[in-house]
Design a protein around this nucleic acid. Structure first.
Length: 213
DNA sequence: GGCCAGGTGTAAA
DNA sequence: TTTACACATGGC
């Protein structure tokens, strides 16, 4: 049982997840910020509000007052902070889009991490889902599920988990895309549910060869 | 009514 | 380097 087989089991059980839910690059980036520690249901409401105000647009976001923006994205929670985060990101991406070549308009992970309000998960989400870059996204579900499978340490850091996945999987954007989405899908059942015991049992061998308890 | 979401920044030990 | 805490709303 390796990470690829776990992926297949998840895919078999849940099917394709069609991520990221969002029509444009800007909407994906905005959603990635709004969903920080917040359920997607609440983010959807905030995005609907933004659309009503014609604000899925970094230029217009920058021209909107903090208080007004915060009011519009209120359903997503942490709205005062997130209003500031959206502006910080908007400023960065508007500048980025002035670069001469398409290639230069792809942000580096390092630059993203320097933006206030963008941490490792949000940076990787933006790179993977908005720019099709092969960066594996790690979230709390990833940690929870794979710690439970004893494939990673319960206190493993973001970078360690990311490296674990990326070094045990082919570097494939489509795979990374679907894998993370499936982990989130499965993670939502983790609380209440009987989460894939089949996978758990068949992980024993892999536990020995790969990871640190 | 309580718990917790597809995290991040900051400050203090 | 690690730990604690603020940030906020709505679904279940």
């Amino acid at each position: 049982m390796d990470l690829m087989q776990i992926y297949r089991q998840l895919y078999e059980r849940y099917g394709p997840q069609y991520w990221w839910p969002g029509d444009s690059r800007e909407e994906i980036i905005i959603g990635a910020i709004l969903t920080q520690s917040t359920s997607w249901k609440n983010v959807e409401k905030a995005i609907v509000n933004l659309k009503k105000n014609n604000l899925i647009n970094f230029n217009k976001i920058l021209k909107t007052k903090d208080e007004k923006l915060a009011q519009i994205i209120k359903p997503a929670g942490y709205n005062n902070q997130k209003a500031k985060k959206l502006k910080a990101a908007a400023k960065f991406f508007l500048e980025l889009n002035k670069k001469p070549t398409t290639k230069d308009q792809i942000p580096t992970r390092e630059r993203l991490l320097n933006i206030w309000g963008i941490g490792p998960e949000t940076a990787d989400s933006i790179l993977l889902y908005a720019y099709d870059q092969p960066e594996f996204v790690v979230d709390t579900y990833t940690k929870r599920i794979f710690a439970q499978l004893k494939l990673i340490k319960p206190d493993a850091k973001y970078s360690e988990i990311k490296i674990f996945f990326e070094s045990n999987l082919p570097k494939d954007v489509k795979l990374f895309n679907e894998y993370h989405a499936l982990i989130v899908r499965a993670g939502k059942e983790l609380k209440t549910n009987k989460i894939f015991m089949a996978i758990f049992k068949s992980c024993k061998k892999f536990q020995r060869t790969c990871i640190a308890p």
